[in-house]
Design a protein around this nucleic acid. Sequence first.
DNA 1: ACCTGAACACCGTTCAAGT
DNA 2: ACCTGAACACCGTTCAAGT
Lengths: 221, 221
Amino acid sequence: MAPARTPPRRRGRPSQPVLSEERITSAAIKIVASRGYRHLTMTELARELKVSTSALYNHTSSKRDVLIRVQDRINQGIDRSGFGSLPWDRALERWARSYRDCYAQHTAMIPIMAVLPVADSPHTLEMYETVARGLADAGWARGDIADVIVSVESLVFGAAYDATAPADIFDPGERSDLAPVFADAVRARPTDAAAAADEAFDVALRAMLDGLRLRLAAGRD
Amino acid sequence: MAPARTPPRRRGRPSQPVLSEERITSAAIKIVASRGYRHLTMTELARELKVSTSALYNHTSSKRDVLIRVQDRINQGIDRSGFGSLPWDRALERWARSYRDCYAQHTAMIPIMAVLPVADSPHTLEMYETVARGLADAGWARGDIADVIVSVESLVFGAAYDATAPADIFDPGERSDLAPVFADAVRARPTDAAAAADEAFDVALRAMLDGLRLRLAAGRD
DNA sequence: ACCTGAACACCGTTCAAGT
DNA sequence: ACCTGAACACCGTTCAAGT
């Protein structure tokens, strides 16, 4: 191992800041990945970085600020590779599936992502640009593009929650006599929660894409 | 009416409990309606009911428990009147619009509602039964009914968030050069946030309903 | 400029003590 | 059985004091 080069510190004074926006965001991602959002507190973030909690506020204005940067990093992982290589509807489907799988692991971010201005999130903005360009190139009208994006996103956020729902979410329990038709419909679902959620998302996404194909065809006539 | 049998109170003892599940739920609804979810804390709930905070725990096991009952009451207000009187697709549309409008005012409840087992929420269960019966009567297959319900619900929850998003949510700010196609698409939206959200929800719901009509027709052949 | 430690104003929940 | 008051283990955030 290389000998630690003598740091240019004047006694007691650190040569450079130990913290940065970048390091805080990375530590936050690490905590979320390893221990979940329940453990993402300013206190645990500080402990992870081996500083005092108040030190974080020299580099970030609030916990919300940290979450916004976490979210922009998460969005980097969403697959938009279909746009430019596949037909628009297949690209949109790939994007939607990846988006939903991503937020199924980050449901705690949905309330933030869903209402957060995009201006401060460069990777998120880049994602929207890729999708918008793919739709525009496929012939979608200027006035429809944002609506299509919001449509898919709305479905995706709701489906992400559903993907994390417990297996018994629709189990009527002892009241199945009060809801016989519904109880019977629920019995027809896969018993595995993930499989049931996947099936429902397939139905929803297929329906929406079919509907959007109709809309594009009608607008073109 | 039977005369109230003389209460066995020994001086200073209240004749009957001042609290009840019912009263707590009503107070919670009142706080939410008048001051919003930010103010729905156990402390404010106790203040509203003029008791100490710890007294609440004689009647409810947790704050989550309170929220579950609040949610079941909220769901009573969702319009399912179309089922049994309108064609299934128009009934489903009415239900979806009412559902979305309702949760746009209660976004704080979405993370709970989306993953909460229905067994302890009688009015919610009744809602699902009404929708399920409407779909079954319209010829939907047993195995599709839950998927259709989940599809609409997923869209509704995401759209409810979108309905509360700020007007500048998609404004690229100073980076519009990095996202020219998207920025142009966003410029085509109504400037009013509510109008923009309504338009997007119209597109999404129409697409999904068109897709579901196709699915039902295909399954029937 | 950047960090620490103490303090502030909250949370939800528990529990011994009263009646 | 039901309520109170005090306590507990947390939150996010601020700020004077240090270097």
